[in-house]
């Protein structure tokens, strides 16, 4: 009988222990994943969203049998990730973002051939599947070239082809679009959509809000190793439904002025994005456009350009949940 959930995580915890010092060695503990529980249904595209260091990659490593949890349990396709790793491995595929993890001195086709044999793909199936996958990730015609000559985006697309070689039921995509140019990232997102339409279960980690919003059916927002919210993208946006976002274009805002803004009663949260020579100050406020005069008054003396009042996005919900600065 097929398991009810593709992934079941219960009170999962992972602590890393490192030693500091040579003579007087001290053990330092870092809790990367702290008592996390969630389920992913078969065929669902589930997102783990969080800032760098939130625990997303640690979670993926535990679910892909590459890291043993410190506590709690996790079942993938009905099998325990620690005691039953063998039946899990042929049925899952995974990607860790970035360029590494390929044999750079081999061609793309040789890389895929080797991984096909590691996943026990029959030679006749591999012979048909490799050209198909290279076409899927738009590397057809480049398969004979050595990977070391590929751009970052090409390498990441080759990772996608590699992970699909054995036609896995469940995919773990850990920041697959990180470092890609906008066109490359958009193409990769289209590949992910196509996989979703093939009813594959996908766990996607990202810190790009729009990516999670565009792709995921449900999102767990994770911060400091804990889930701070788990909902659909629309559900998450409801966290900030009572707020408006006031975007102010400024030129060189001093940090103390941000503190002045944060102290205002009409202000819920303030973040700054760098946009070329300018900055955008994003103020979350329950007051909407009525709060603008008070905010402008607090910024008196500062050159302010365009002012826009808009509905909150998933990114704004994320800022409220995580409470940190957003990368420009």
């Amino acid at each position: 009988m097929a398991p009810l959930n593709a992934i079941e995580v219960r009170n999962l915890r992972r602590i890393y222990r490192t030693t500091i010092g040579v003579i007087r060695r001290r053990v330092k503990e870092v809790v990367a994943v702290d008592d996390i529980s969630f389920d992913v249904a078969p065929g669902e595209l589930f997102g783990l969203l969080g800032p760098n260091g939130a625990g997303k990659t640690t979670m993926v490593k535990m679910l892909t049998t590459l890291l043993i949890p410190s506590a709690g349990t996790a079942r993938v396709l009905g099998f325990d990730v620690v005691d039953q790793a063998d039946p899990i491995r042929p049925r899952i595929g995974f990607i860790f973002g970035g360029e590494r993890g390929l044999y750079w001195r081999l061609s793309a086709i040789d890389n895929l051939r080797y991984f096909a044999s590691l996943y026990h793909v029959e030679p006749e199936i591999a012979r048909k599947r490799i050209p198909y996958l290279l076409e899927l990730v738009r590397l057809d015609g480049r398969g004979q070239e050595k990977v070391e000559g590929y751009s970052r985006g090409m390498k990441q697309r080759l990772h996608v082809a590699r992970t699909l070689l054995h036609d896995p039921e469940l995919l773990f995509l850990d920041e697959p679009t990180i470092g890609l140019d906008p066109i490359g990232a958009r193409e990769l997102r289209q590949v992910i959509r196509n996989l979703q339409s093939e009813k594959k279960t996908i766990l996607l980690t990202t810190h790009y809000m729009f990516e999670a919003d565009a792709l995921c059916e449900r999102i767990a927002v994770i911060d400091h190793g804990r889930i701070v919210a788990l909902d659909t993208p629309e559900g998450l946006k409801r966290h900030v439904r009572d707020l408006s976002v006031i975007e102010l274009e400024v030129y060189g805002i001093p940090p103390e002025l941000l503190d002045v803004l944060r102290a205002l009663e009409v202000v819920e949260a303030v973040t700054v994005e760098n946009r070329d020579q300018k900055q955008a100050v994003l103020v979350q406020s329950p007051g909407g456009s009525e709060a603008v005069p008070e905010i402008l008054a607090a910024l008196s003396g500062l050159r302010v350009g365009k002012v826009i009042v808009r509905e909150p996005t998933l990114e704004d919900a994320y800022v409220r949940l995580v409470g940190g600065e957003v990368e420009p």
């Binding site: 590459l66 991984f115 026990h120």
Partner: peptide, 8 residues
């Protein structure tokens, strides 16, 4: 990680 994640 990719080698150790395979059933090989």
């Amino acid at each position: 990680p990719y080698l150790f994640g395979t059933p090989a």
